[in-house]
Design a protein around this nucleic acid. Structure first.
Lengths: 115, 115
DNA sequence: CCGGATCCTGTAAGATACTG
DNA sequence: CAGTATCTTACAGGATCCGG
């Protein structure tokens, strides 16, 4: 039987721990849709994320090399975020997932109401 | 600017709240790899899931119409799970995401070590 | 053997206030 | 403007017992 133990090499667990949190995909999709964005722009685009969670999420995405962070030595300060090459290469796959969700959400909602 | 507010119609939030939890994708992938499985089989395939969380996850997937649940009136009891049509239609998209993860994980790990 | 029900806890996430 | 720091809360998830 095929199994998926947590032996440290399971790609499903990896991708989940990266993208499965509450905000990462949303930030990635927002950045893809708008290109380069400042912190405030992202915060406005995703209204109900807290400042703290946006910072945390961006730091993780930056550490993973999916998002680049550019600080300008100005007053007032300016920080710009955008997808890296690696980040961009991920987006088509997320899009197919989102397309599937849009297509099948009606039947899922219907199924859920029967339970 | 394009945004993604939680107006109840955002497909990204929908797909995330469905598949973003800790175990759903793992259960789906396990069922796809092995076909029809009993509760105990799934529990063995995913060693570190608790009995409770496997029950909860299967109930959600069943309610969403992604997994079917068949109870046999036997002693000892037997319950078989398998993917529905809808569930199967989702799997190719998950697979592309997993493939991407396998391909890019080395550079992600490397990037992470630099931070 | 398959799971439901209950209780409990750690971590993720929100609110708020403050700084370079 | 773009964050930190701190406190607090909510919920996911684990342990355990029980029942058909």
């Amino acid at each position: 039987m095929k199994n998926f133990h947590a032996n440290g090499k399971c790609p499903i667990r990896d991708v989940l721990s990266r993208l499965g949190d509450k905000w990462s995909m949303l930030v990635l999709v927002t950045l893809e849709a708008n290109g380069t964005m400042r912190f405030r722009d992202i915060h406005n685009a995703i209204a109900d994320i807290s400042q703290r969670m946006l910072t945390v999420t961006l730091r993780i995405l930056e550490a993973d090399g999916l998002v680049s962070r550019k600080v300008y030595a100005e007053v007032p300060p300016r920080v710009e975020y955008q997808l890296t090459r690696t980040g961009e290469s991920l987006m088509p796959h997320i899009r197919t997932l989102v397309d599937w969700a849009m297509q099948h959400m009606p039947e899922i909602v219907e199924s859920r109401e029967g339970h």
